[in-house]
């Protein structure tokens, strides 16, 4: 049931997701970072729900439910659990500084618009900017991973990149074949579990999650 309402809603949710990732770039503490990831996942679930509603695709409904269950309830809970167990300091060391990060994310957004110019020309108007948004969410989250010093912040960055990716996939072609999405979900889940395990190990051997210590492997 395609209607102006749903297409507007889709755009709004996508923009909110971008907003969440830009805000994530701005935070300097861990807890708000995870909370922003949670918000972004909520928007993503809502986005999927509206797309499912407008396209009448049964499997996107399931996708929306799974996103909500895993990314909103399970993963943040795990991250918090990890954060408490390894008693990591809340302070997040930024190598670029907040103003720098903001400028960086703005530049990345402009870049993704410029880069996806040929791509956007071929698309129908509806999906046009969702693709660009997913593009920029991915670039921003990778740059977040590159500028934050904490191991857990890297995990959050990775998860946000996944969100951006799924946003793009669903926007462009009503999601990939179901087994693919299922596989992708499980992959993400597995990644988080294993990263959790290694975070414990790092904590045990380095007694801190600060990545600066991870520098013993120098080439002499």
């Amino acid at each position: 049931m395609e209607s102006i309402l749903t297409s507007n809603l889709i755009d709004i949710f996508a923009v909110c997701m971008l907003l969440a990732s830009v805000l994530a770039m701005a935070t300097t503490r861990m807890h708000p970072l995870i909370r922003l990831f949670l918000i972004q996942s909520i928007f993503q679930a809502a986005f999927e729900f509206t797309v499912a509603y407008s396209q009448d695709e049964p499997h996107i409904y399931i996708m929306a439910v799974m996103t909500f269950v895993i990314k909103v309830l399970v993963i943040p809970k795990m991250l918090y659990y990890i954060m408490d167990r390894i008693k990591v300091t809340d302070k997040l060391v930024l190598s670029v500084g907040v103003p720098g990060s903001m400028l960086l994310s703005a530049a990345l957004i402009m870049l993704s618009y410029f880069v996806s110019e040929p791509l956007v020309a071929t698309l129908a108007t509806a999906e046009r900017n969702t693709l660009v948004l997913s593009f920029s969410i991915m670039l921003i989250s990778i740059s977040m991973m590159a500028t934050r010093r904490k191991a857990v912040s890297e995990v959050v960055g990775l998860l946000m990149a996944e969100n951006g990716l799924f946003l793009g996939a669903i926007a462009l072609s009503n999601g990939m074949p179901f087994i693919v999405e299922l596989g992708a979900f499980f992959d993400v889940l597995m990644a988080v579990i294993i990263v959790g395990i290694f975070a414990f190990r790092i904590n045990k051997s380095f007694d801190s999650v600060d990545d600066t210590l991870l520098r013993r492997m120098r080439e002499e």
Partner: peptide
């Protein structure tokens, strides 16, 4: 994965 999405 994004590449595969594009491929799809």
């Amino acid at each position: 994965l994004f590449g595969i999405a594009m491929l799809y």
